[in-house]
Simulated assay, not measured.
Amino acid sequence: MDLLVRYIEDRDFSQARLGRYAGVSRQFIHKLTSGETRTCSQRVGELIEEALAVLPGTLFAAEVSPVRRQRVASSAPSGRPRTESTSARAAAQRGAFADARSHS
Rank of each mutant, 00 (worst) to 15 (best):
M1I: 05
D2E: 11
D2H: 08
L3A: 12
L3D: 07
L3W: 04
L4F: 09
V5I: 08
R6V: 00
R6H: 13
R6S: 15
I8A: 05
I8W: 01
E9F: 06
D10K: 14
D10W: 02
R11M: 15
D12G: 06
S14C: 09
A16E: 09
R17A: 12
R17G: 03
L18K: 01
L18A: 10
L18W: 01
G19I: 11
G19W: 04
G19N: 10
G19S: 07
G19K: 14
R20V: 04
R20M: 06
R20L: 13
R20D: 15
Y21E: 12
G23V: 07
V24W: 09
R26L: 00
R26T: 05
Q27C: 05
F28L: 12
I29Q: 11
H30R: 13
S34G: 11
S34C: 05
G35C: 01
T37S: 09
T37Q: 15
R38E: 03
R38H: 08
S41D: 08
S41M: 00
Q42L: 02
Q42D: 07
Q42F: 02
R43H: 09
V44G: 08
V44A: 02
V44Y: 07
E46G: 08
L47Q: 14
I48Y: 02
E49S: 01
E49L: 04
E49D: 08
E49V: 00
E50K: 15
A51S: 10
L52F: 13
L52Y: 08
L52T: 03
A53M: 10
A53R: 15
L55I: 09
L55A: 12
P56D: 11
T58L: 03
L59W: 03
L59Q: 05
F60P: 10
A61D: 12
A62Y: 10
E63A: 14
V64D: 12
V64W: 07
S65P: 08
S65Q: 07
S65W: 11
R68F: 14
R68Q: 06
R69Y: 03
R69W: 02
Q70G: 09
Q70C: 12
Q70A: 12
V72T: 14
A73L: 07
A73H: 09
S74N: 03
S74Q: 10
S75E: 11
A76V: 04
P77Q: 09
P77D: 06
S78Y: 03
G79P: 02
G79N: 01
R80F: 02
R80A: 11
R80S: 07
P81F: 03
P81M: 10
T83V: 06
T83L: 08
T83S: 13
S85Q: 00
T86L: 10
S87A: 13
S87H: 03
A88L: 01
R89Q: 05
A90C: 02
A90I: 10
A91F: 06
A92F: 03
Q93E: 12
Q93W: 01
Q93N: 06
G95S: 01
A96P: 00
A96E: 14
F97D: 06
A98N: 04
R101L: 05
H103R: 12
H103Q: 14
H103S: 15
H103M: 07
S104Y: 08
S104G: 10
